[in-house]
């Protein structure tokens, strides 16, 4: 029987004679399209952020610059070339992810927006190392973080387009309050993504067992939620 790799509990009523038809069967914690898109996105984000820091350094918005050893491109022309090449990977992969997640029910099943109380409860549990991690289930902190970083990603792309094309995409430029304001919005969207990345990597360091399934897919019982 073909089955969807990311589907939740079997919604069919108990068939009777054989109460556990799926016993012993497994499905991946993370289906392959999700893993592929995760690592493509990770690559795109690293290239975008590091080349973006080099571009920032040509005309800093604040009283600091990013040190050359953590930037990409060596000089402004190289950094722009990386940035405007990797943007295609970021955008195409991002659109694929949003389409995949909404069409197959991944967002509905796994990314239900958490309420503030849930987030608070799970944050306290996480900070006191009492938050249990179950493969295949995103806790409220994870869901809040993933939804936030998706929003920051959309904001980064929209404000980036406004900086790149303030004349042709004037409606985006106007939306963010003009060319200079778009640069600030783009910077804060980057800061949001980098902030997410810091927390994300910290959580992986705290619960290292979550890393292998993002590479190999891992195995979950069909009966698992």
């Amino acid at each position: 029987m073909p089955h969807h790799p990311d589907r939740g509990p079997d919604p069919r009523p108990n068939p009777g004679p054989n109460p556990r038809p799926n016993r012993g069967r497994t499905r991946p914690v993370h289906p392959w399209p999700l893993r592929l898109m995760h690592w493509l996105n990770a690559t795109a984000i690293v290239v975008m952020v590091m080349s973006g820091w080099q571009i920032y350094d040509a005309s800093p918005l604040f009283g600091f610059s990013f040190p050359g050893r953590i930037t990409l491109g060596e000089w402004l022309g190289g950094a722009i070339a990386w940035h405007l090449a990797a943007m295609w990977l970021l955008v195409l992969n991002g659109v694929a992810y949003l389409a995949w997640g909404s069409l197959n029910g991944h967002f509905r099943r796994r990314l239900r927006p958490p309420g503030p109380r849930e987030v608070w409860r799970d944050t306290i549990l996480a900070l006191t190392f009492r938050l249990d991690h179950r493969h295949g289930v995103y806790n409220a902190v994870q869901r809040a973080l993933y939804l936030a970083v998706i929003a920051f990603g959309v904001l980064a792309v929209a404000s980036g387009l406004a900086v790149w094309k303030p004349v042709q995409l004037w409606f985006l430029s106007d939306l963010f309050g003009g060319f200079r304001a778009s640069r600030y919005v783009h910077f804060f969207a980057m800061a949001g993504i980098v902030g997410f990345l810091a927390v994300h990597l910290m959580l992986v360091a705290l619960v290292p067992k979550v890393l292998p399934p993002m590479i190999t897919g891992g195995r979950l019982s069909e009966d698992a939620p």
């Binding site: 690293v46 050893r69 953590i70 990409l72 491109g73 022309g77 190289g78 070339a81 990386w82």
Partner: peptide, 14 residues
């Protein structure tokens, strides 16, 4: 001459 190098060394991309 440095700037003439089109695209710099990809430091993080060994």
């Amino acid at each position: 001459l440095d700037r003439r190098r089109l695209l710099g060394r990809a430091l993080a991309f060994g």
